[in-house]
Design a protein around this nucleic acid. Sequence first.
DNA 1: GATAATTTGTGCGTATGTATG
DNA 2: CCATACATACGCACAAATTAT
Lengths: 252, 252
Amino acid sequence: MTYSQLLANGPGRRSGVTVWRQIAETLTSEIRDRVYADTGRLPGEVELSARFAVNRHTLRQAVAALQSEGLVRIEPGKGTFVQHELLDYALSRRTRFSENLLRQGLLPSKQLLTAREIVAPERAARGLRLEKGVRVLMVQTLDEANDKPIGLGTSYYPSARFSGLLDMLNEGQCTTDILKFFGVEDYVRVQSLVTTQMPNEETAHLLKQSSTRPMLCVESVDEDMNGIPIKYGETIFCGDRVQLVVNTGGES
Amino acid sequence: MTYSQLLANGPGRRSGVTVWRQIAETLTSEIRDRVYADTGRLPGEVELSARFAVNRHTLRQAVAALQSEGLVRIEPGKGTFVQHELLDYALSRRTRFSENLLRQGLLPSKQLLTAREIVAPERAARGLRLEKGVRVLMVQTLDEANDKPIGLGTSYYPSARFSGLLDMLNEGQCTTDILKFFGVEDYVRVQSLVTTQMPNEETAHLLKQSSTRPMLCVESVDEDMNGIPIKYGETIFCGDRVQLVVNTGGES
DNA sequence: GATAATTTGTGCGTATGTATG
DNA sequence: CCATACATACGCACAAATTAT
């Protein structure tokens, strides 16, 4: 019997956890840690089975488990490809979609889905600290990284302050620039609420995601430098592609 | 034809979104906003259908949709009861399980599942900034609010610094007190990573949750006041019972 | 225990909008 | 343009379960 690398570092062979499962978990955390981000594919089965010092059958069982979790896609004759790389999305005081992606070397893009004026839904009104029944501008976008959809965002702006915003958005202008036009030099994220949900069919289709995979839902309020709410947003992220990062290290 | 409240405030009848769906969404956000938290039940069908100015059948279809999502439970002859109230779990610099719950008037409790010394898994070692292969103390707990399970936590402490911690835990001592015994007067949360996953059968069973409902996974690192990592934790929260709160309002 | 009130469950008929061919 | 099929929404009536009086 060969002693694997796992035997040395992990729970070991008699721990009640099967060897293939231990390998699967090791590979899972490696994929989550972007060890294979550059090539987008796992090493060959012979190489991996050598590394873990197990039979190729054992390794195949581990990789098969990863595939059933949707983490990798096995293409016979070609290789095993990482299916979902998690990108880090920081929930910070200065939360900006583009900056968040560029920092990781990803190309941000947005598709404008809908933009229209409506009566504020209850949550939006409360988030923006507006009276019930006030009109707001609703903007729905499909957010992408390297042209792959990562989230579905719905933003609400008070109509009174930002009349004309929708036309400027339709002309393709950047949100930050538009806000500057309205005198908002800077703005900050005050609070984010994080929940998880299963997608409905429409959402899954828009995000090109399986409807059996969960999503991360972030509800957020942004304020200008005077503490006045300017945007209430609800973003639905693909759970398979996004990991939220909350840094609480630098403050008092 | 009767004009409903939705017609005035929402997308309207000719928007491609059916009336029962609009009602379902309105009720969903109201439930999420704890509008019915005091009674724990929805108003009767006649009352609700009057409020939305729709037929009782239409309203029933909306409520049936909520039930299929697991948000409410309908009991014939009794009423419709809210199934899952979301509790707020703050991810702050001072993240404490008990404080988080007590602040909302909930009774916190923990069940110690396992406590043993193992070789640090890769993620734990990295989180604790330890060499690969160093031994750590692993503690698994079932976290409850008002005796209902809300999360499954796995914590890793460096063995070298906290030898004897497991025995003290088995004696039922509070974690914060134990840490104080080891000279850790205070500690802070540095970072939290949030992802979402479906539960495996075992996890679903432990959390008394349907295995078709998603969960929130939080990976965290706590440091003492000298900036030395003392705990790496992985907590799996029921997505139906927990909402993560990230406040970024008070800092510079 | 009997009755009434409340609440959910169900059946049938009708009308309308939408998608298909 | 018409025929068909289907889901949606409405109205009315009654049955069954639960609770209060």
